[in-house]
């Protein structure tokens, strides 16, 4: 009964997304060329996984002050808004959270994060959950990788104790080649990297692992060999493949997202994260991170933040925003706006 209910939620998400995704205007990377956000506008940096989503949300949000989002990659440094201190462009959730902590609202108002709070984050930050994503692994279509890997397989691959496909013996029907596996990880500031490692129990990263790739970019030729393995946001992949939200380097290329522990990540019929994967250990919440001091200040800036991010705010309650979430591959969160801390 419970699975049926979750499945209905997931299916409804997909249907809504398919109907509404084309209603909004096109998303633009970064604030539009020639536009410098005003000092009072709400400006975010951080996660690669949700940068495309936030470009769309920024386009669709019509409130005042406006909402702007800076991509994880691009020219650097950046001056985020009028009067801001120039900063190195934060690439990833961790870098965004760090930037939030090292600046004031004159420069950064929120950090996009694809991971939850963890040890080392400022205790003065509020993590505001708004959607559900999941992480699995991806490999080249037609390459040497199987359709499924277990958590134990991934632990071995990333520890470099499993280096060839024929050392994988726990996948029914799979006879691996003698070719050498090429494991990749996103850069250290990536929330997808952080969540992938923690959810799969990978504690040892061997020297065979390339840790330099940008996440969710199958356009990278390093990942296009027959033997590459890389973590991938399931939601981001769905947005790229099923809703045509990829562009430039932000595309899936020849990669396909594979099963983990036998759980199929994508409901290809409904074009959404599968109900089984959504309740697995490999699902994660997506957050916007704000300074608690800003959130609770009781001033116009706090009002502006809450108008966008709170449980009764635009992202959680507006039909266009919710349709954007679904169109970019993510699941709505019933407890949208719930706040957590380190």
């Amino acid at each position: 009964m419970r699975k049926t209910t979750v499945a209905k939620l997931v299916s409804a998400a997909a249907l809504t997304a398919s109907v509404v995704s084309l209603a909004a205007g096109p998303a633009l990377a970064d604030p539009p060329s020639g536009t410098t956000p005003a000092a009072t506008d709400i400006v975010g940096v951080g996660s690669d996984t949700v940068q495309a989503l936030f470009n769309q949300l920024s386009t669709d949000y019509t409130g005042t002050p406006k909402l702007y989002s800076w991509d994880a990659t691009g020219t650097s440094p950046i001056t985020t808004k009028t009067g801001a201190t120039s900063i190195t462009r934060p690439n990833g959730s961790g870098a965004g959270i760090t930037a939030l902590g090292s600046t004031t609202s004159s420069t950064v108002d929120f950090a996009r994060s694809s991971r939850g709070p963890q040890t080392g984050d400022p205790t003065t930050d509020d993590f505001i959950a708004y959607a559900k994503d999941a992480v699995s692994w991806a490999a080249k279509s037609g390459g040497d990788a199987p359709a499924n890997l277990t958590k134990a397989d991934l632990q071995g691959i990333y520890a470099c104790t499993i280096t060839k496909w024929n050392q994988i013996t726990d996948i029914s029907g799979f006879t691996g080649s003698a070719n050498t596996i090429q494991p990749f990880l996103p850069q250290s500031g990536s929330g997808t990297r952080s969540f992938f490692l923690s959810s799969t129990g990978i504690t040892t990263i061997g020297s065979c692992v390339n840790q330099t790739v940008e996440e969710n970019e199958g356009s990278n030729t390093l990942l296009q060999t027959n033997d590459s393995v890389v973590p991938y946001s399931v939601g981001h992949y769905i947005g790229q493949v099923y809703f045509s939200h990829g562009s430039g380097t932000d595309v899936q290329g020849p990669l396909t997202v594979r099963n983990l522990d036998g759980i199929v990540p994508i409901d290809t019929t409904n074009k959404t994260i599968s109900s089984a994967y959504a309740v697995s250990a490999y699902s994660r919440n997506l957050y916007n991170v704000v300074r608690a001091g800003d959130w609770n200040a009781g001033d116009s800036h706090a009002t502006a933040l809450k108008a966008i991010f709170s449980s009764t705010g635009w992202i959680c309650k507006n039909a266009t925003a919710q349709a954007d979430l679904k169109s970019y591959g993510f699941l709505p969160l019933a407890l949208c706006g719930v706040i957590s801390h380190t």
């Binding site: 009964m1 709170s310 449980s311 009764t312 019933a334 407890l335 706006g337 719930v338 706040i339 957590s340 801390h341």
Partner: peptide, 16 residues
């Protein structure tokens, strides 16, 4: 035998 959704948390939400 079928569960009925009775109540939904709302407003200011926090977890810890």
């Amino acid at each position: 035998s079928t569960p009925v959704a009775l109540l939904d948390p709302a407003g200011d939400l926090s977890v810890g």
